[in-house]
Design a protein around this nucleic acid. Structure first.
Length: 402
RNA sequence: GCAGGGUUAGUGAAGUGGUCAAACACGGUUGACUGUAAAUCAACUCUCUCCGAGUUCGUAGGUUCGAAUCCUACACCCUGCA
């Protein structure tokens, strides 16, 4: 069938893997590199889709597991797909539920963080909500405790029902605390076979649902921080008929760029690469420099809801007492709706009063901040000034720590 | 006026002889958050020369080896009866 999906590379950065491009989807184009905000449950928490669109976000990513449990992918399908269901007229992505294999299983809370020195805190049997085998995963619903079996085929059925423009293959996200033997086993016995099964089911559903807008499928690269495993995974996936790739897994901050670089070297140049779950500014620079095209992450929204707001000079905690009578915007020069209209003191007050508007204003600011950063990086690649921008930007952002 | 109940750290509120500087909640301060079980979580929140010490539980005395806890007086608040 005719694929209404296309990735075009425009500009490349000399001496690096960075590139700009356009991802064409049935619901519009995405200029890359791009940051894709996450609306897990078909909404970016605290924002209307229109408010999210106004931040400059070019697409949004939702989650198969969460929407399967509630309201049910059949409901979204009956509504006419994610776009119609949530009144969002730009491209959409859905995650496969692979992240939940980890987050509800071995990796809840501390175990998933990116600091190599984090203390392992194994879950008790009672706390654990997911059990993996090579067939798939059994989940205990975090909503009502019911047991659900999840696998590659079901993930694809859900994602086709949701109707996102870009879907991800069902994978296993390992943690930094799993040893080499487990990483190999996970990659070869689950992530690889699950990728093939996802692709097969995807093809079946694409034919069965002929007439619906084309949905692209990205294979997901795992392999933790092992170079040979990462390259092995890339070569394996590159041979398959995927439309693009998700770069997933547990990373440590120190060598994130290096790991992405291995994948950037192995993966075909003419297919887009999506960084799963990355959005800290330094990480974004490193990933783009090494060939990543798009990013999704909950962090700007979550940290914003918890009072951490981005500025070019680092994050500030707006709940802090020093902002009580600070009547300046979050930072001078920010073009977001929040900074155009409100002060630090007002946002500070909203947080202390536990007003819902605090979440909205903070989220708008943070999403705009990261979207704009990636937009600026895109411009710098075209202009050939990426390295200057990176050096100057990060020096200013982290100046307070030095 | 008589009878009964009450007065605990910023607030509310446990505690009725030692394990009490005193539960818990809120408030406050600081920090964390990277394919969302997150409008969440953690630490601290009497004072100090803070791995130890010093002052607290309406006020003042007293009993006791030891009191926020028992006794006496006083102050204030609440509820009945006058």
């Amino acid at each position: 069938m005719q694929r209404d999906f296309k990735f075009t590379v425009h500009d490349r950065l000399d001496g690096a893997l960075a590139r700009t491009g356009t991802i064409h989807t049935p619901h519009g184009d995405i200029q890359t590199p791009a940051f894709i905000p996450v609306g897990t449950q078909a909404t970016l928490k605290a924002l209307t889709p229109e408010q999210l669109s106004d931040t400059g976000a070019q697409a949004m990513l939702a989650n198969a597991y969460h929407l399967y449990l509630r309201p049910g992918h059949q409901v979204v399908d009956a509504a006419g797909g994610l776009n119609k269901f949530m009144n969002w007229n730009k491209p959409t992505f859905t995650d496969s539920g692979g992240f939940q294999v980890m987050s509800l299983g071995a990796g809840f809370k501390k175990v998933i963080d990116m600091k190599g020195d984090a203390v392992e805190k194994p879950l008790t049997k009672k706390e654990k909500l997911a059990w993996i085998d090579n067939e798939g995963v059994r989940f205990k619903s975090h909503l009502d405790g019911t047991i659900h079996k999840f696998n590659a085929e079901l993930s694809m059925q859900i994602q086709h029902g949701l109707g996102a423009d870009i879907m991800f293959a069902f994978d296993e996200l390992t943690t930094l605390y799993d040893d080499r033997a487990y990483q190999e086993e996970s990659l070869r016995e689950r992530t690889h076979p699950w990728a093939l099964r996802s692709l097969a089911e995807h093809k079946r559903l694409t034919e069965a649902r002929a007439g619906k807008p084309y949905q692209a499928l990205f294979g997901v690269v795992q392999g933790a921080n092992y170079e040979d495993l990462r390259r092995e995974c890339c070569r394996f996936l590159a041979e398959q008929d995927f439309d693009g790739f998700g770069l997933g897994g547990a990373f440590t901050k120190e060598n994130l760029g290096e790991i992405v670089g291995w994948m950037g070297e192995e993966l075909p140049e003419d297919k887009p690469r999506h960084m799963l779950g990355i959005s800290e500014p330094d990480d974004i620079f490193d990933c783009i420099e090494n060939g990543a095209d798009t990013f999704d992450c909950v962090s700007p929204a979550r940290v914003g809801r918890n009072g951490a707001l981005y500025t070019p000079e680092g994050r500030i905690n707006i709940k802090g007492a020093k902002y009580r009578t600070d009547f300046s915007p979050i930072f001078e020069g920010c073009d977001c709706y929040t900074c155009q209209n409100y002060t630090r003191a007002y946002v500070h007050h909203l947080f202390h009063a536990k007003e819902l508007l605090a979440n909205t204003l903070a989220t708008i600011h943070n999403e705009r901040f990261i979207v704009r950063l990636v937009d600026d990086i895109r411009t710098s690649i075209t202009a050939g000034t990426f390295h200057d921008l990176k050096a100057a930007w990060l020096a200013r952002y982290y100046a307070r720590d030095i």
